[in-house]
């Protein structure tokens, strides 16, 4: 799976959250990362080719006045031409996924009716969701990070992996899909452990796989019981 990340941020180097995301990119995955504000002019053909090649498109930005920074709008207005998106009825972006990684300076509870912002994130992102719908792209649940600066060390550790999963894990974010993602990643992570930690890593991987199989078995048993109860 190829993931295209388009970052809109006017001062990327000064943004601790954006630097954090960049350092968290999963090294083994097929990821194209682009900073929109760094482009003086968008190469439309190149940008459209990137979109065609991607399976998942991620728009990543801080929320400025309930919207993305200006560079994302400039990119949309230049790259997403009518004929490319839907005009010729070919829909080259159909069935791709679009996810938004948005950071906010206010806490999650502010983004609801009666909250300090009085507007949900879904409502602020409605214009982007409408573009996705027009292009027949699947809109993913939004990945929001509120008040990054206030996160604890433990929350930041968890954020690394939650972000990686948002970029590369099949949707929906179910237990089955989560387990499959971890199983695959576990193999790569065990392989890069130093020699003296390999045995522990392998033991953990084996136990993990066994738990996964046990869960499948239990779910099957339960499904069978439910089936007989229906009779």
């Amino acid at each position: 799976m190829t993931t295209l990340i388009l970052v809109a941020h006017p001062q990327l180097a000064d943004s601790t959250s954006q630097q954090f995301f960049k350092a968290s990119l999963p090294p083994e995955a097929s990821i194209v990362w682009e900073h929109l504000d760094a482009q003086e002019n968008f190469d439309v053909a190149q940008e459209q080719a990137q979109l065609r090649q991607a399976d998942r498109i991620i728009l990543q930005f801080p929320l400025y006045w309930y919207a993305a920074p200006a560079s994302l709008k400039a990119w949309e207005d230049t790259v997403l031409t009518r004929s490319f998106v839907y005009g010729d009825h070919r829909y080259p972006l159909a069935d791709k996924e679009l996810g938004v990684v948005v950071t906010t300076g206010m806490p999650a509870k502010a983004f609801q009716r009666g909250g300090a912002e009085g507007l949900t994130l879904d409502a602020s992102l409605a214009p982007l969701a409408a573009v996705a719908q027009r292009a027949h792209i699947r809109w993913l649940p939004t990945f929001a990070v509120h008040q990054f600066g206030y996160l604890t060390e433990t929350q930041k550790l968890q954020l690394v992996v939650d972000y990686q999963r948002y970029l590369t894990q099949p949707q929906p974010d179910s237990l089955t899909n989560r387990q499959a993602w971890f199983a695959q990643r576990l193999e790569q992570m065990v392989a890069k452990l130093p020699a003296d930690q390999q045995a522990t890593g392998r033991l953990i991987a084996t136990t993990f796989d066994q738990s996964r199989a046990d869960l499948d078995q239990l779910a099957d048993t339960l499904a069978m019981i439910k089936e007989t109860e229906d009779d």
């Binding site: 968290s24 550790l157 954020l159 992996v161």
Partner: peptide
Amino acid sequence: DRAFWVAL
């Protein structure tokens, strides 16, 4: 790397 094991 630490993040991966903590998340696991």
